[in-house]
Amino acid sequence: MKETGLARKVLMPYPVLQANRLVKKFKHTVAVNSASFTVYEGEILGLLGPNGAGKTTLMALLLDLLTPTSGTVSIFGMELRKNREKILNQVNFSSTYIAMPLSLTVRENMVFFAMLYHVPDYEKRIGELLALCEIDHLTNCLTRELSTGQLSRLNLAKAMLNRPKILFLDEPTASLDPEMAQKVRDLLKNLRDTLRCTVIYTSHNMLEIEQISDRIIFLNRGEIIADGTPRQVMELYQKRNLEEVFLKVARGPGIQ
């Protein structure tokens, strides 16, 4: 699984996304509390936290699926809510937990999304991506005939259609076998290294996050409790791996 393109250059970090004091309150809960952070071009950022920590809410705020109670999100230097169309044309999203029209073929689904994102020469691009995700033999199959893993790969292929500058992934490897999960991780690294694509993703696989993230943001009860490289976060909690950090956060109060 290799995406061709420019070789990774060592450049000054360029901020592609800025969250500024984001707050999301529901009736009785504060799902995200004053989250501020910057994500840079070509960075793989892992969002971590126990269930209910606010990861999904935060990702939804970053994609304008949810209106913040207060605070702003800027992407490529533009405020998200005021420039939704322009920004969403340059980013994409994939989640293991959403489907695609099941009565359409794999190709028809890809054509539909390629048209939405106005992808030039889309037949060629679709062919490349289906081959990259190893589902090109399923091009004319109905999407309902795909296994969960194949559907995940189709979602991933769809998310790469418009050559996104930021790729949001919600547990992209959750339903994949270990070999395919490794291929997806390699692909993400490759996207970062060759195209300087920024990847923001959630996963419950701590080892995976440790392996591929340049940086992680640890959330608990809507608060960012740690922000740094995996090593920095492990040192902060004095643990040997992220699994142990996760268990410590999930079981008890965070560090003071």
Partner: peptide, 18 residues
């Protein structure tokens, strides 16, 4: 409803489609 039944709404709302 076809979009709701096929759980495709999120894909549409994260796209530039207005």
């Amino acid at each position: 409803l076809e979009e709701v039944w096929s759980r495709n709404l999120l894909n549409l709302f994260v796209s530039p489609l207005t």
